[in-house]
Amino acid sequence: MKNKVVTFSLTLVVGIIFGLGLIISQMTNPAKVINFLTVGEKWDASLIFVMAVAMGIMMIVWRWTSKRSAPLLANSFTLSDFKLVDLRLILGSVLFGLGWGLSGICPGPGLVQLVTLKPDFIIFFAAVLAGMWLTNLLNGRNKKEPN
């Protein structure tokens, strides 16, 4: 019971820290993302710093995990051991790239922007969920994929 409370609270705090990171870095601002992706006079390199710092921290952490058999508060690491680079991965990434390049919004910022209650962001997020639902529906007819 105590463990469940700790897990719940810490996961919630992790979500809050992540969300604050998305907002402070301005990943939540579509113009910032679009300008990062656009060559020319409006190019804004800021997002390189977001990615580099976050990845740098995670590189160190992966080294730490590789020396351990279990994380601090769970019995094992829940990681994908799925290694196949297939058409599904590439097609999915192409479609995601199209949507991200058009809107400047990926799933995390799309979620955070919901709190502003702006209709555009609510419609966008509803469409994201609809896309996921549709994919799961079609996928359910074929086979189950690992997460």
Partner: peptide
């Protein structure tokens, strides 16, 4: 907006992941 949202939803779902 609807098209972009659908693309992000279908794409990340097929690829099992996004920017994070």
């Amino acid at each position: 907006i609807v098209v972009a949202g659908l693309l992000v939803g279908v794409g990340t779902s097929l690829a099992n992941g996004c920017t994070s």
